[in-house]
Design a protein around this nucleic acid. Structure first.
Lengths: 214, 214, 214, 214
DNA sequence: GATGAATGAGTATTCATTCAT
DNA sequence: TATGAATGAATACTCATTCAT
């Protein structure tokens, strides 16, 4: 089985400032938020599951919502690390000469990320409609930075004549939809399939769909 | 402005057994569930917004959850009406000789449905992770019937050599992801764009991506 | 099986002013009050069990409490009928020359009454601690009249030298306790026994216990 | 005035694990349950009378019913302590050579118990028709153990030829009815009388009534 | 006479949060 | 730092009662 709460492990190992109790609280809250949703999970339940007094939760997190954010925010930061940390323009030329290679690497990378953060991503997706903070954080951290970076990348491959010449944002949307649809089918619907083959078909579909006009 | 609660209008016009108060309750609840989510909406708020005593809600709906289901269930039933009502195999040959025409009709139809039921669909998507009843209803009503129908349709066009010969479910997933990604971008992110042009690009993308191998 | 709601039958047959619905309400209410208690029975439940609209109950009985009283009061009136209706002093001399005969007749009579009114008596006993009206009614109707009558009777037999010369009220209390203990054991605890034999033992016990000093 | 809530005093003094607030809750609840009955007493009233927030009640007692049981159960346990704690067979021979002495001791002991637990006993008697748990508890704790013990005792005196040779359970019923009738008259009806004299008359009545046949 | 929709006060219970220890 | 008792506002839901039809 893949580890679905890798992020929490990292958090508890890396962040030496956290108490043991705090770690237990984060683990318990993640589990319950993912399962029942934020609004339907009581701090009492979290405390019990974490083996901690209810007061202890509020010693570390002023409000229940702060606890939610402290789970979701680091995930969002880590999510874009691999994308913006290094200057991708240079790397790209060398690492991925063809758009298809880039696509394949991207999918592999996101797949690993998802598998390691399944529950937190689930919480994020479930709660984003109800919390403006989450939406703002997402737009601030991910939206602008990542979208800009991707536009650059897409235009890079367009200039090399590898993909069709329509607006970069449209290409990103089409690609992202396809990839996210793949993961959604896999995790939400819980489908069992031959993953490698499905990914190959997806890439073939994307490469054909985005092929430049002759 | 497009009417976002068309379903409710229909319900209140068609179903003569409903009280005026009941209609007000359904409208108020839909608005609030969409905005704040089911768990975070109190029956007290709904009553106030509907201009009704709190007890009146429970005279008509035994529990808060029953109220939720009474909003979402009819939407799900209507959702598939146009798809399964007529024998599509026969109709197809005549109505849509090309897969592209079918695609275009499908997108137009779903677009109209979405625009008329935006809020209820939003509630459905937001709440489905938290309510097993919703998942079961969806699988029961939509999942089996609709998926089977679509498989037939896809295989029909595959036999005519119009689309690539990979598993029908994979084609459905790729197509559905692309279309849902389009709507998601449009409604959730609230993007403003030239809709017709975007749809054309999406169809071009799909037709190229699903074109048969030469 | 003995009819446990004979009183209700009488009420519905004798009192021609009652509607059918009213009869159904009285029967349903009696059943539920006996089973769950007055406070824990809702008018909604009564209406459902009676197959009547909730409003109908309040058309006939202004309040729930009035419904309770309309069940219990007639029972109380009937309870003492046989005792005070006729001039017992005269009758006694002729009918029951010996205290033992009087006792035996009394027990038989009360036994029949109880068997015919089991549920209503049960309601009365269960509710008397909580309703001053019931206590007042009981003291007014039963307490004074009946107690006085019994004192006369006891003193009558004391003068005849058949029973011990202690205060009549004490004798009444001892006798009543014994008889009520018998019925309580029988009905509340639900004991199965040879009734005639038990009654004989009880009478022997009472006659010995109340025998005059030598 | 006699102390009517001695049990509560004991509970609050012996059980060091109880909070002050908890004690106040128990006292207030006992008072109100006795006066108005369990079903007709609201937790809001109890909280106000106890000078406590309503939530505090539910921190200590999961449900209102649990609060009721926590008041009544210890009373039931204490009720039989003096009867089953020691091996009565041995004690009897020495302590009470005559049945009359045993009776007198018994009545004195029960009288003291009642005076110390008047309200809780009242609650118990009022609520027992409505709560199966109470009936089960009573049968479990009191019914079996105590009845068996009493049968032994009665048979002991029968063998000594001091009381009549009818079934022990009948004797117990007759005796218990008489004693309970005495207390009922005293406390429920609230009679004022010369207690010692009444008790003497009761004992005389019982001894005569249960005297062996010649 | 009978209905049943509507009410609003009331119900037991849960909640996130505080604070003295 | 951690506790858990205490809070009081809020929760979903029930109630006896009213009233227009």
């Amino acid at each position: 089985m893949t580890e679905q709460n890798h992020l929490l492990e990292e958090v508890l190992q890396e962040d030496k400032s956290l108490t043991d109790k705090q770690r237990q609280i984060l683990i318990a809250a993640t589990e319950m938020f993912a399962e029942k949703g934020f609004a339907a999970t009581s701090t009492n339940e979290i405390a019990k599951k974490a083996g901690v007094a209810e007061g202890t939760i509020f010693r570390h997190y002023k409000t229940k919502k702060e606890l939610l954010l402290s789970i979701v925010t680091p995930m969002m930061v880590k999510m874009l690390g691999p994308i913006i940390i290094k200057d991708m323009n240079k790397v790209l030329d060398k690492e991925y000469e063809h758009f298809e290679d880039f696509l394949r690497a991207m999918i592999k990378n996101r797949k690993e990320f998802l598998e390691k953060n399944l529950k937190v991503v689930q919480i994020f997706l479930q709660e984003i409609p109800f919390h403006q903070e989450l939406r703002e954080q997402f737009i601030e951290h991910v939206g602008k930075k990542v979208l800009n970076r991707f536009v650059q990348i897409i235009e890079h491959y367009q200039q090399k004549g590898q993909i069709v010449n329509i607006p970069a944002t449209t290409i990103i949307r089409l690609t992202a939809s396809t990839i996210m649809g793949h993961f959604a089918t896999k995790y939400v619907i819980g489908a069992k399939w031959n993953d490698d083959e499905e990914i190959n078909q997806m890439i073939t579909f994307l490469m054909k769909g985005l092929a430049p006009e002759e």
